[in-house]
Each structure stands twice: as structure tokens, then as C-alpha cells.
Nucleic acid binder design. Sequence first.
DNA 1: AAAATAGTGTCTTTTAGACATTATGGT
DNA 2: ACCATAATGTCTAAAAGACACTATTTT
Lengths: 250, 250
Amino acid sequence: MTDERSFLDGYDPAAFPAVAVTVDVVALTIRDGRLHVLLVERGGHPFAGWRALPGGFVRDEPLDAAALRELGEETGLRPGEGPLERVHLEQLRSYGDPGRDPRMRVFSVAYLAFAPSLPDPRAGTDASGAFWVPVDEAGELAFDHAAILADGLDRARAKLEYTPLATAFVGPEFTIAELRAVYTAVWGEELHAGNFHRKVLSVPGFVESTGETAARAGERGGPKPRLYRAGDARLLHPALLRPAREEDVR
Amino acid sequence: MTDERSFLDGYDPAAFPAVAVTVDVVALTIRDGRLHVLLVERGGHPFAGWRALPGGFVRDEPLDAAALRELGEETGLRPGEGPLERVHLEQLRSYGDPGRDPRMRVFSVAYLAFAPSLPDPRAGTDASGAFWVPVDEAGELAFDHAAILADGLDRARAKLEYTPLATAFVGPEFTIAELRAVYTAVWGEELHAGNFHRKVLSVPGFVESTGETAARAGERGGPKPRLYRAGDARLLHPALLRPAREEDVR
DNA sequence: AAAATAGTGTCTTTTAGACATTATGGT
DNA sequence: ACCATAATGTCTAAAAGACACTATTTT
């Protein structure tokens, strides 16, 4: 409230009870048709040996920059370059319950990242502790990270409906089938191939044709599919709604 | 990253660079058919005399509790009692750019509150500095609060589409016309009365009939409208989509 | 040759939206 | 008497969803 704000004026910052602010990243990608999340294995206490979301303290930088930096450090990739160039990053929400970190009051701003299949983090760099895990095999995580992951998955599933976010999971050029595989992996539901195809092409700005076709058809035959790239839409109208399940509604 | 986390173990918390965490609340209500936001006038520097969102430092409490407490303090109402009993409160997002507060690094977790028309804060209590302002007359705000307000409005407008949130703006019993007035005020668009009426009743769980009718008709006549209360739906299926505007899509 | 897939066509059901109609109860 | 409104009806257009079919390419 107002009094408290003015209270801060001229106050010695060091006298405040110590709090820390971190970013944690729910980085999602699709490998072999399954949705994976980037996890690290913790070295120190607490939760030593547990899996956790990658993250770390916010430095003298904007929150978005901190999240991108952490993602780069854990994957061993340069933020904004190469594979991380096309990463979609958005803020998820913040977590700050007292006691969520046993050492001190730690507020975490969680981020959600979507990336096309990235190389394995172990390869080469010092990002040794990170690895991709299928989301349904994440198991127990340190701190409240399991809840953060669940929130991130909810957000991702919802955003596929009304934004062209699925294109962030594929390369710069992709087939309709690849796009459908994203929806299948994230939603965990099979979609009718024919209807999906027509639907995607009918939504203005979702995808645009490159005029090219893939060099090869699928492993098990079929015509060479046409290639598309992401269009300029920021919202899908009409949206690609997933079938409403009764339990979600009540 | 992992190293930094273990780095924290056994570390002296007071040695960390001072940061503060606040909550700021975008509290929305509808008065006289117009969407209003709760603002306070700042006493101290910086931004002395400017309008700002109500907010304050997070104490030894969960973030949600901090937001509800601040809302109670500014409105002079008891959290969880009386008018604040039915308040809908949800986290909006966090803001933490260096320099957003000139005094020190301040992270703010913004909350969004929806309430039926609340009494004027000035009445009685020491919540003297707060007042309801039509959102389109909010003008310039302290810190980055104008951006926070804009984000809150975006969120509110979007959530009316696919959640029964509009019922949080009306009393426990309401007419379809009152519900329509909420949509009109938040979206700033007129809706077709007849189609809206049928649509609301057709969405499962959005509203349920009380069997009663209002004691009186509208000021300018007409039949006595039936009364409804909020149903048990958490999501609207199918959603109440607002007409897609081209500029939102690209 | 067999099998799988890309892309399209067709039909039905659902939903959105424009518009009209009736009855009610204020001024 | 007049008028705004509640509630419902009707019709059309758009979209969703089920299903079928053809052409193409791989093993």
C-alpha cells in the first residue's frame, strides 16, 4: 500500500529480509513423436540428486533475458543463435510460497520455451547435467517443479488451440503431417488427418506454402508432401479446438 | 543453473544484492455500465502524486494471500468477508525489468481481481487514497503500471470468451441482461441481445435458473426478467467468441 | 504387389449471426 | 398510448466432424 511504498524511500536496502528471485524454464520439444521436457540433475542440497527444471538466479538483466540465458547455459547453445534462434519463450507464472525452498524465501518466475528438436545437451559443452525426458516420465521433481511443469503443460496445450505455436516445434519448413504430429504429441490425442489438413490450410495466416515438396515421402510410402512455413497470424481464427472433455469443463 | 543452486547452500543470505518483491493488483469492477479499475494516489517518492495500482511488499505469506490482503487494505474491506467474499483473484504475470523502480531492483507479481460493484473505498476506513476510475480514463500511471493494466485488460477480455468469469462481476443472482452488460463493458462492443440470451442458456453449466424473476422490470419497462446464478462450469463449451478483428490476428 | 500416406470431396451436425415476432410492464 | 425490453422463433452461413476416395511413393 501507499504507506509502505513511501516507507521504502531512503531505506537501506540491505536491511530487508533476504529474498531471492530465480527463473525456472519449462523447455519443451518433440522427439520421436513424444513431448519432452529439459531437466537437470541437482548436485547440491537441498534435493541433491533430484531432477529439477533448469533455472538460476536473475542477474542485472530483464526476466526474459535471464530465462533465455539459463536455457542457453543448460543446452550449451548460444541464445539467439543457431537452434536457439527460433525458440519461442514466454513467461508462465510465478511461484513464491514460503517454504517452497527450505533455505530462504525464493520467488521463481517460470518461463515456457518451445523449440524444434534440439541436440542432446551432453554433446561437448559443460552443460553436462541436462537431458531431455518424456514429459510423462518426468516423475518427482525438486521443489515445486512438478507443479510448475504441470502448469506449463496446461498452458502449452491451451495455446495450441488458438495460436500458431505449433510451428515453434518444427523447423522453418515443415509438412502438414509434421504439424499434426506436434498436436498429437502435445495433446496426447490422435487427430483425423484429412480434416486436420483442410483445417490448417483454411485458417488465414497459419501456414503459407513454399511451393516446394519434400525430397522424399515418408518411410512407409505415400506421395511427397508439400512444404509450408509459418504464416503471419498471431492468433488462429477460427481456432483449432480440441474435443472438449467433460472433466475439463466442470 | 545447477552450480548456482548449490552455490547458495550455506551462503549468507544477507550478502545477496538487495531485491524486493511486491504484489500489484489490477482490480476491475463495473459501475454504471463502465469498466473501472482501482487506483491509489502515491504519497511518497518516486512518482509522488501519481496514480498507481494498489500493491505492496510481500510478507511471510503466499503470493495469493498478499494480493488479497492488499486488496482488502485498499478497499477497506475484510478479505474473504462480505463483498470481498466473492472476489475472483488470479495471478496475471510478473514484471522485473531493471530500472522499473528507480530505488532498487523490485520484482512485482501482478494479480487480476474481478468483483461486483464494491463500495467506494473512501467511506469510513483509512483506505483513503483509493478510488475507482473508468479504465479508459486511467491516464498515465506510476512505474510500469500502465503496461500492467493493459496486460490485465487483455487477460480479462480474453477470459470472458472461454470462462464463466463474467459472473464474478455480478451479484449472486443476476439477469441475462446484467451478464450481457458485463460483456459490453469489458469488450466495449454491443452484443445482439437475442442471440446472446440464447447462447448463454445453451452453454452447459454457465448459468442455472433460480426459478425466480426479478421484482421489477427495467426502468423503461419490459417483462420482469428471470434470475440466474452461476453454474458449475469452469470452461465455456462452446466458447462465447467475440468477433475476430483483423488487427488482433496479424 | 502391398501398404501407407497426401490431399480432396461429400455429407451431416453443430454453431454463429442476422432478423423477426410476441408478450410484458414500465413511463 | 407508447416504447423499451425479455424471451423465443426462423433462416442462412460458417464451421466441425465423420467418412470416402484417388493418386503417389516406398518397401
